[in-house]
Structures are given as C-alpha cells and as structure tokens.
C-alpha cells in the first residue's frame, strides 16, 4: 500500500538551483523545436485538407528508419544526404497515400468523409507500423551519430566532442544538432508558405477552397502537396531524432500524441499556434520530468504532462491559443 502515499518532498525539491531550472528549460526548448516541426506538418495538413492525420507519427518513424538504414548500409554517406533522402521518402509516401486514399474524399466519392478520414489515416499508421516491424524487427535500433562538435573553449561556452557547455549547463550535442536542423527546416517551410507562389496557393486553398479553385489553383494538387509536405516534416523530425533516441516500430505513437497535444493547444490549423505550442510542450515536459519526485519513473511520466495539458485545453478553451472557430 506504500504507493498510495508517494514521497512528495524528496531531496531534489530542496536543492533546486537556478542552473537546474535553466538547464531544464533549455533542454525543453531544444526538443520543443522538433515537436514544433512535427506539429507544423500536422497543422499544414489540417489547414488544407481539414483532416487530422493519425499516421503522422508513422512518418516520423519512417524518417528515422530511413536515416538509420542509410547510415548503416552506406557508411560513406554524409549525414545531411541521409536527411534529405528521408525527407524524399516520407514526401513520396505521403503523396502516394493522398492520391490513392484521400483524393476520393475531396472528390466526394466517399460517404461520411470525416469518419473515413480518421479511419483511413489510422489504417495507414497500422500498415506502416507493421511493415517496419516486419522488416526491421521489434528490437530498438539507434543510428550512429554523424556529427561532432569542433573543440572549443570560449570561457562561458565550451564544447567537447559530444557535449556543449553553457557555463555549468551541459547540453547534449545530438539534440543541439537536431534542434538546429529543425530550426532550419522550420525557416525553410515558413519561407515557402509565406514567400512563394505555391505557399500562397496553399494558404488560399486553406482559407477558401472554392475561391482558390476559381482563380485557377487546383485544390486537389494542393491537397497532395500539403499532405506530402506534412508527412515530410514529421519524417525530418524523426530523421534528426534517430541519432538521439532508440527506434522501434511504434516509436511514432507517443510522438504523434505529442503533435496532437500541440495542435490542440495551439489551436487547430494555426501555424503560430503549433510553433508556440511545440515550445510550450517541450518546456512543460522538461520541467515536469525534472521535478518529478521519483526519478525512476520520471521518463515515463514525460508524456503525462502533455496529456494533462490536453485535458485542460479541452476543458477551458477547446479552440486553443490561436485557434480559429470550429
């Protein structure tokens, strides 16, 4: 019965230092950027196709596995090339799936489209999970690190090969690298969305399909593009994280759960919402895990904070921070 009264005030609580808090926040932001990247993909899909892709986590999983396989098979392959190939593969899967299964919905060939969308994307996640399970097996894999810091010592900022020190605070190099790639990808996709013709076309379709169609944009093509791009963003997130976490075929499930929390928190279909939401989730998780009384179970509870946030948002403001009206 001892579990009924957990020890709420262990030593960790007493010795909280500000460096510890800052470290947690920094770690949270580093991972939050990647969450944001993934959630942005989901937002893109939602705003154009008006559906939530329940296979989003599987794109993440596939992206990771592609990098893993490439780096293992072709040792000479440079890391960035593997990332690009992962993006290409996930983009292609997304485009093909959209053409085959979601396009009929947009064409009105499907009964009860909203129910169909939930189930068919879920079906895709089922298929992808088991394909990867069949090919890769159930055992955790970890891709080799393909990045190391140059040795630096600038007083406040020091690096070793694997770690970067900001003063006292150690930050693992793999995560920094992942976050940097994620930021670059975010900037690229935002540039694409706001500064190119195709991006404007996507936005036009997301705001008013019929109006967009009248001015000569083919909404069906935009659907395919949005779904494929969304999947690609998740794939990139997976591709950069495969060097950090160990990879199993169902690794995408908690990842997609996080994206769901973020898009609901930020507001369904809101691009700034998914960026801010991703960072918030990263920091909340990091702080929550850091202060969890029992360090043995802390990692398992990492996702619980997201779930609690999810519940609170649904309870208080279902439209989220930046949400448009449902």
């Amino acid at each position: 019965m001892e579990w009924m009264a957990p020890n709420l005030f262990p030593v960790a609580w007493m010795s909280v230092s500000s460096t510890y808090v800052i470290r947690l926040i920094l770690e949270g932001l580093l991972i939050g950027v990647i969450y944001a990247l993934m959630a942005l993909g989901l937002t893109l899909i939602f705003s154009v196709l008006n559906i939530v892709s329940f296979a989003h986590g599987e794109f993440y999983m596939i992206g990771g596995y592609v990098v893993y396989v490439l780096l293992n098979k072709f040792k000479a392959l440079p890391g960035p090339a593997a990332l690009i190939l992962a993006a290409v593969v996930t983009f292609t899967i997304g485009a093909v799936f959209e053409r085959l299964f979601l396009q009929p919905m947009a064409r009105g060939q499907v009964d009860r489209p909203s129910e169909y969308a939930i189930l068919v994307t879920f079906g895709l996640s089922f298929v992808l999970q088991y394909i990867m399970l069949a090919i890769m097996g159930p055992f955790p894999k970890k891709a080799p690190r393909f990045f190391s810091f140059p040795k630096l010592d600038l007083g406040f900022l020091r690096t070793t090969r694997t770690t970067l020190f900001l003063g006292e605070i150690p930050l693992p190099g793999g995560r920094i690298f992942a976050a940097v790639i994620a930021v670059l990808a975010l900037m690229a996709i935002l540039y694409f969305m706001y500064r190119t013709w195709t991006g404007w076309a996507l936005q036009a379709v997301s705001q008013d399909r019929n109006a967009a169609a009248v001015v000569g944009i083919n909404p069906l093509n935009m659907n395919t593009l949005a779904f494929a791009l969304g999947g690609m963003l998740a794939g990139l997130a997976g591709a950069v994280l495969v060097t950090v976490f160990s990879w199993v075929p169902w690794v995408g499930v908690p990842a997609s759960a996080k994206s769901f929390v973020i898009i609901v928190l930020g507001g369904m279909g809101s691009i700034p919402g998914s960026l801010v939401g991703g960072l918030i989730l990263g920091v909340v998780e990091s702080l929550g895990t850091g202060f969890w009384p029992n360090p043995a179970t802390a990692q398992a509870y990492r996702d619980v904070f997201g779930l609690i946030m999810f519940a609170l948002v649904l309870l208080v403001k279902p439209t989220g921070l930046f949400g448009r009206k449902l």
Partner: peptide, 26 residues
C-alpha cells in the same frame, strides 16, 4: 466537441496510460 477530438485524446490517453502502467512497477 467534434469527433476528431475524441480520437485525438483517446490515442494520446491510450499510449500514455500504457507507458505509465509499464513504468509503475510497484
């Protein structure tokens, strides 16, 4: 809310519940 929200919430709940059950060995 509309149907998507139940789907979103339950998938998150299911996975996280499983992880917690797995972690709470005691």
């Amino acid at each position: 809310l509309r149907a998507t929200y139940l789907a979103l919430f339950t998938i998150a709940f299911a996975e996280i519940f499983r992880l917690v059950v797995k972690a709470e060995v005691k």
